[in-house]
Design a protein around this nucleic acid. Structure first.
Lengths: 210, 210
DNA sequence: GTCTATATTAAGATAGAC
DNA sequence: GTCTATCTTAATATAGAC
């Protein structure tokens, strides 16, 4: 029984994750979640009582999977600044490429119900981001001092890096249409070169003119 | 009667715009639209027949307001490349700042129903973007030839510019929380300096090391 | 634990009076 | 053109049999 229990619950979670990520909270249907899990709607309620509760659990899971990876890179003390940035960009874009709808899902939900969502994120993160950023700032300050990079506000720089990585994935259908006339192969090729492009662009922007 | 007719219709459109932009298609309620317009739900249906039809009209309006402004700048033949870029960034960030939820609304809807939304956009735009980009590319090529900027892929550059402008607004609640501990004043100050930051960053990235 | 059947509620949409 | 009242449908949620 324990076995089957665990399996069913896991099936529901997988299915719910897919449906919520594709459709968002309001667009998702309990019926669709049940269908995709290959079982009855009532069973979904039996395990998770309400759509709201199920959603919270999914959102937490997605967020937890998505964020710590970023922090690990920022806090690595052994790497120099540009190494950190490069490593971060590589990891982050890989993650986005493999989980194509996650970024827009998070953005969507944050804009749907900002207060509720931020509260949830606050509970999850427990303020760990402050340490991440402090470490990154220290690393940046040192690099500036040594003349390796020009002086920049560390928050602006972080936002710049994340913007460049995330936006093409969030705006994917629009970018593909506007810039590639819906030619998907061309757009995928564009994304493939994106990692190098972003790294190169950042490097070029913060390296002192010799 | 004509007078009143026009007024009511306009009230509904205004209200619908607000509600759809805040809540998205699935989150919006016809009741809420009617309430905010100060009238009955039935009247909204009398004017627009269905939620779907009303939504399409709103989406088209938002998109039309949002896009041509970009094109005007890109196609201005009198400005040099960096002037164009600078002008574009100023205009675009102003627009985003004044209409804080529009960007996330468009992104949200595009991800909710990509095919349908892209079809709609295709009808609206009529392929005008190709001309915009062609003109921009020509301007970029010339600047590269003259040694004013380093060689860059024009699509990557455009995506970079838009990413840097749009993302802080789309991710607003999350950025405010993660980087400013929800201190709204600090975050607004950050946005205020964003225009200069982006211009400077781009300039720095594509200017040849002397 | 899992199903069928059903209750409940909410939302889009229409009919009909004024 | 605008309202009240109502229809219809669809979605969340629960009861109860197995």
């Amino acid at each position: 029984m324990k076995e089957k229990d665990h399996n069913t619950e896991q099936h529901i979670l997988n299915s719910a994750r897919n449906v919520f990520i594709r459709k968002g909270y309001h667009g998702a249907r309990m019926q669709e979640i049940a269908d995709e899990a290959g079982m009855n709607k009532a069973l979904v309620h039996y395990y998770f009582r309400s759509k709201e509760k199920l959603f919270r659990q999914i959102f937490i899971g997605v967020f937890v999977q998505f964020f710590p990876k970023m922090g690990d890179v920022l806090t690595d003390k052994t790497l120099p600044l540009m190494g950190k940035i490069e490593f971060f960009i590589h990891n982050y874009i890989d993650l986005l490429a493999e989980n194509s709808f996650i970024a827009s899902f998070i953005i969507m939900e944050i804009n749907r119900d900002p207060d509720e969502t931020i509260n949830l994120i606050q509970e999850i993160s427990g303020g760990m981001q402050e340490q991440y950023f402090a470490d990154f700032k220290a690393s940046l300050d040192k690099a500036v001092e040594q003349g390796e990079v020009i002086p920049v506000d560390f928050r602006q720089l972080i936002v710049n890096i994340i913007s460049l990585c995330v936006f093409p994935f969030i705006g994917r259908p629009l970018v593909r249409f506007l810039m590639f006339d819906n030619d998907n192969a061309a757009f995928e090729a564009f994304l493939k070169t994106r990692k190098q492009e972003v790294v190169h662009f950042i490097k070029s922007a913060i390296t002192p003119a010799s």
